[in-house]
Write a protein that binds this DNA or RNA. Sequence first.
DNA 1: TGCTTAATCAGAATATTTCCTAAATAGTAT
DNA 2: ATACTATTTAGGAAATATTCTGATTAAGCA
Lengths: 154, 154
Amino acid sequence: MHELDQHLLQERLVDFEKRCRENGLKMTHQRLTVYRELLSSRDHPAVETLFQRVRRHISTISIDTVYRTLATLEEAGMINRVDTTEGVVRYEADHGVSHHHLVCKKCHRIKDFVWESFDTMPPPPAVDHWGESVGRSVVFTGICRHCREQGGEK
Amino acid sequence: MHELDQHLLQERLVDFEKRCRENGLKMTHQRLTVYRELLSSRDHPAVETLFQRVRRHISTISIDTVYRTLATLEEAGMINRVDTTEGVVRYEADHGVSHHHLVCKKCHRIKDFVWESFDTMPPPPAVDHWGESVGRSVVFTGICRHCREQGGEK
DNA sequence: TGCTTAATCAGAATATTTCCTAAATAGTAT
DNA sequence: ATACTATTTAGGAAATATTCTGATTAAGCA
């Protein structure tokens, strides 16, 4: 973990407290831990996965709390669901930087990347006609370098 | 259903038979019906939904067959899974036209649109470095016209 | 400090998805 | 027409995912 990351993380946590207060959400140990764990998870974890990780810090936390917390934070716009074809809900913290996803068909790992020239591209007319769009994301699918070289571990 | 649609549908079904033969897949009534139903479904149905529809034609079909068929056809590249944040697997038939998705946060309906200037855009360097990409898709999320006007029916 | 109420907990209940087994059926090639 | 084998079926098991209940805890405020 770099200095910079530590700094950004700290910044996010301060922001988290602020936004909780704004939304009338109490700052519980559980909430903070779930959020912090998601913040430092770079792999867009499913609920169960995140539950396991949070458990390492709060051994008595119930999975119900993780579900509830994620739903609450999502509603408040502090975290996002990730698009997948797996039939599993996955989350990521809002890191404040627009990014998109690279999805490996073998290992199902998801990697972030930024693409400014896409972000600034005007949407096609069909989008405006459809309704009010609030977000856009790109997903590239394929086989990641790791899987191609090692045959994958799926 | 327009003349044109009928024609395209027919074309797709012929292609389906050909590809089944190529892959050594027998042309069963069930397979054909599942595929045809998906072809004419414009709403990217989940397995259960598609099962209900196919049932109208083959009342004795088992859901297991639908699961198996979809998995088989997906493997053969004749149908695709759709990206969602719902935690549900959804499918669409390969209509032979590159398209992308508009997803309504209220009613969860998914609409297709084409975006050629995106399709022809070169990927950012990060993608090439990541591995071998075989597909790309864009998802716009927001509130569709229908939901905005009527308050949605979630 | 004490009150109020949101939030958490244990763990059971429910729901959903997917897979499995053994027997019956039906394509396809000969 | 026959044989071979993939495929389907019923129905239940297994695996996952999600929600609920009632009792307890603790955050935030007066």
